[in-house]
Design a protein around this nucleic acid. Structure first.
Lengths: 229, 229
DNA sequence: GTCTATAAGGAGATAGAC
DNA sequence: GTCTATCTCCTTATAGAC
């Protein structure tokens, strides 16, 4: 057999076993979830031996961690690059536009869906993260996301200074939920819209998601609306 | 043993085996997810025999369906009652306030968390539904939710006539995501807010969620904002 | 309706040859 | 590094006594 040497990926480049496992795991975890995906499915898809998983990664949980870590870094780097550009053009104390900040947060995730083919499963995987994550994985995720959370919290407060810290927390949480749900279950949009909306169009998604999150956040600035009835 | 007769629930009322299984399953599914919860855990928690699950429900998937069906009906009934009241006081062609409609949608779910103790796990379970659901369960859910989706879509359009059907679909999807994420992972709010927000306060949650969704939806009415830079 | 006992299979993980 | 073979455990589901 010796699949390691014979098998090539779609780019005609030889992939080593470790990478193939990560790719297969990423796809299957995204598709079916962490708990329901077995190592056997992964090794079958990756065309490697079952024992290779335990050789390269010690166990299933470490594999999950490795799948996540591989992507989080580059995504957040891209976010930070976009924020660098925004803050540079805004100057030291110039205004920051809420929509721009939200775009810098969302664009790197949404473009991963289409830009490079090897990352097209990441968005859905990210969407799963928030509801399927338990104990140690949650800690890993929070640790890796903490710098980004800090920076975007600060940036949003600069864009909307009248937003209280508590309201910002609520709004951020809701926005992350909206994003995650779209990433994990975007196909529901076809059902809701009766086929008139295409969730694969990620520029449309970005436009609507940014507008929605900005409008939602701004609505939390003052809570002095007592609705009729 | 004969646990069926000896065991009583917190209300001093004798529960039968079937109900105890449903209660235990609801709690454990909400806590740990569908896939990772085994029937053995459920029967242990319910203090019934393992075989009872297969006697009362044919298999695990049917049990999941039963857990879901038991709650969806009453929740949607409560939603419809609230909408009846709203539409009655608004009259035939009177105005409908977006916040009121959203409250009618959200309140029955959020109050389930605290109002009656036997439903306190439902909200989190509902939150899991959207990302963990596969094939046949998704169909069941869509079928049971279709009437509510129809009615609230119509009501929101009446409250905000300038919202296009497509934008409404996007906004509804995002709002469901925000709600689901809060229900399933509300504890993250403690992390995001550094302990200043209490996700268990469901009146606060309703207030913020309604304001956020209303603001987000209204922001989708016109997309003529080209953000600077 | 409820129990015991067990079937039948899939899971993660490892030992040891190559 | 990669393979085969296997261990051990846990899962769902069922057969049959009571």
């Amino acid at each position: 057999m010796n699949q390691t040497i014979e098998t090539v990926d779609q780019g005609n480049r030889i992939q080593d076993t470790k990478e193939r496992i990560l790719d297969a795991a990423e796809r299957l975890f995204a598709e079916n979830g962490f708990a329901t995906t077995s190592l056997r499915q992964i090794t079958a898809e990756a065309q490697v031996n079952l024992a290779a998983v335990n050789y390269h990664f010690q166990n299933k949980e470490s594999l999950i961690r490795a799948v996540l870590s591989r992507r989080i870094g580059p995504i957040n780097q891209r976010r930070f690059d976009l924020m660098d550009a925004l803050e540079f053009s805004a100057g030291e104390d110039g205004p920051l536009v809420l929509e721009d900040v939200l775009s810098a947060f969302l664009l790197p995730v949404l473009e991963a869906r289409t830009s490079c083919p090897e990352m097209r499963h990441w968005p859905r995987l990210l969407g799963r993260l928030y509801t399927e994550l338990h104990g140690s994985l949650m800690e890993l995720f929070q640790r890796e996301m903490a710098p980004a959370a800090q920076r975007f919290t600060t940036a949003i407060r600069r864009a909307e200074p009248t937003l209280s810290p508590e309201s910002l927390a609520w709004g951020l949480h809701f926005g992350i939920g909206a994003m995650a749900h779209f990433l994990a279950a975007g196909e529901l949009l076809r059902f809701i819209s009766r086929g008139t909306v295409d969730p694969e169009d990620h520029m449309e998604a970005l436009k609507h998601l940014v507008a929605y999150m900005a409008g939602g956040l701004r609505a939390l600035r003052t809570e002095k609306k007592e609705a009729a009835q």
